[in-house]
Amino acid sequence: MTIKILAFGQISDILSGAEIELDNIDNTEKLTVELNQKFPELIRLKYAVAVNGELVSGRAILKHQDSVALLPPFSGG
């Protein structure tokens, strides 16, 4: 299975490119571990996670073709 990662704000710099795809990740905890390994700079950052546009917390299930957005603190206005 494949999920799509959408990175925003400061995190888009770290992931160097706005979107990446990852295989065989079926929940958000696994995703965090995987991302922290690939991008150690993420470990010290505070960010929220949204699956298909809805904020999630804890261990959320991921399905094939889900979009997972990594959202650093908002700074609109």
């Binding site: 400061q10 949204a50 957005a69 908002f74 700074s75 609109g76 206005g77």
Partner: peptide, 12 residues
């Protein structure tokens, strides 16, 4: 305006 600043995913 308070809610826009805290709840809408916008980055500057």
């Amino acid at each position: 305006i308070e809610r826009i600043k805290t709840e809408v995913p916008i980055w500057g």
